[in-house]
Design a protein around this nucleic acid. Structure first.
Lengths: 237, 237
DNA sequence: GGGAATACGGAGGCCGTTCTCCACTTTTAC
DNA sequence: GTAAAAGTGGAGAACGGCCTCCGTATTCCC
């Protein structure tokens, strides 16, 4: 039985089965996308990405049929950084400092990457590594939170979803202030962290503490904020 | 000397010099814009506004040559609400409650009006009333802050610009969560307020307190975030 | 080197939005 | 009632971004 050439050519380069020139172009596209998204957010015209990569627009679409796939590829590296940041934070001695470092590093990542800022409120198509990376980051973040709470430094009622809320808030600050006052978010975050630190307070606030979104709600939030005009947007539909 | 008819017709209705039908259409447009912006944010297609007002698109452009002018007209009422909210907050007995009420009311306004959420990070063309209204709100808000600080309830280092930062943060939370968890912002705000309340803290935070944006910076921030894609856009740049 | 498979790029169609032009209608003042 | 002024709406031009088609070029394997 005749084996088609296509079979023989499988798994050629990097296990992706791409021709050498195709693989080269793919890498260029990802690099271009990283810088373009960082500068202009997730809703930039894809033309720009192709141009900066030095390839035709068709090549971009051939390799990444949807914007989501390109975004996913472009941010795989950042996603790793995220997981690493969470794990590194864990190595700090002081549990509260550990928490602060985690939060500050992610916020800083938002501050110098418009695309990453946008990404915070969106979910990506489940790529091979990305789900695993997210989980790594999630697990480490939960450990950081738990440790800070056990040490009596972080308020007991804080849950992982609150971290997402915090990042959405930071996204709002960063989006508005980045160009003019690129460190404004640090001040805001300082206030915020003071609110998360344990201390004799809370008795002062009237009314009961509102509940955090459930994990299911969070999932729907993320899925609902799909890539469009941005939304930002002010990403809007 | 012949006096042109146009002279005689000046100051006809409401001091705007519009023909009766034109004035009627103007009002319809403003009403339509209010609801359309509230539902879809500041970047909706203007077609939709004209359609909902029951007028042609040309009429919209004739009356409001730029999107900004329409936005300004549509939000004059909300701007009043804002000033009133600040003044009403002042009537509370407890200075801290007064501050909390102010902040919560503005955040709530953001939460149920996408357009208002977008507006927070933008400046409007200086319309007749709006500058005056903004000032009214500003003055009242400063009084609320000052009173709460004198009472020893609000942290001394908080300035008016921090309130803007807070609203930008809330915009971020609200934009992401509105559809799915419309009260998530309240939880976030509770944390935030705990950070603004005076208590034995701050000593715990490493490093100096970052400075707030200067008023001049704030002005540039607002002017820089012009109406575009969003803004969304996630509206951007 | 040669043929098959794979990849390339840009021209061009599509679509939604912005904004203008102009022939027609309504209002106004007298 | 009438003429001038003011206002109207919708067709369509212009624009920008999205995405595909297809003739040409490159790579791969033998």
């Amino acid at each position: 039985m005749l084996v088609p050439v296509v079979e023989l050519q499988r798994e050629r380069h990097r296990g992706r089965g791409l021709r050498a020139d195709a693989e080269r172009n793919r890498e260029r596209l990802v690099k271009a996308a990283q810088s373009v998204f960082a500068e202009g957010g997730l809703n930039v015209a894809l033309d720009e990405v192709a141009t900066r990569a030095g390839v035709g627009i068709a090549t971009l679409y051939r390799r990444f049929p949807t914007r989501e796939e390109l975004v996913a590829a472009a941010f795989e590296a950042k996603l790793t950084d995220y997981a690493v940041a969470a794990e590194e934070a864990l190595t700090r001695r002081d549990p509260w400092d550990s928490f602060v470092e985690l939060v500050e590093r992610i916020c800083a990542m938002q501050a110098d990457d418009r695309g990453f800022t946008d990404l915070i409120t969106m979910s990506l198509p489940p790529a091979k590594h990305s789900a695993e990376l997210r989980d790594r980051g999630r697990r480490a973040a939960m450990k950081v939170i738990g440790r800070a709470q056990e040490a009596g430094a972080l308020r007991e009622d804080l849950v992982l979803e609150d971290l997402a809320l915090l990042l959405m808030a930071n996204a709002g600050v960063v989006r508005a202030t980045r160009d003019v006052a690129p460190h404004a978010w640090r001040r805001w975050l300082a206030f915020m962290l003071d609110g998360l630190r344990v201390a004799p307070r809370g008795a002062f606030r009237p009314g009961p503490m509102p509940a955090p979104p459930t994990p299911a709600q969070m999932a729907r939030i993320l899925n609902g904020n799909v890539l469009t005009q941005g939304g930002a947007g002010p990403v809007h539909e």
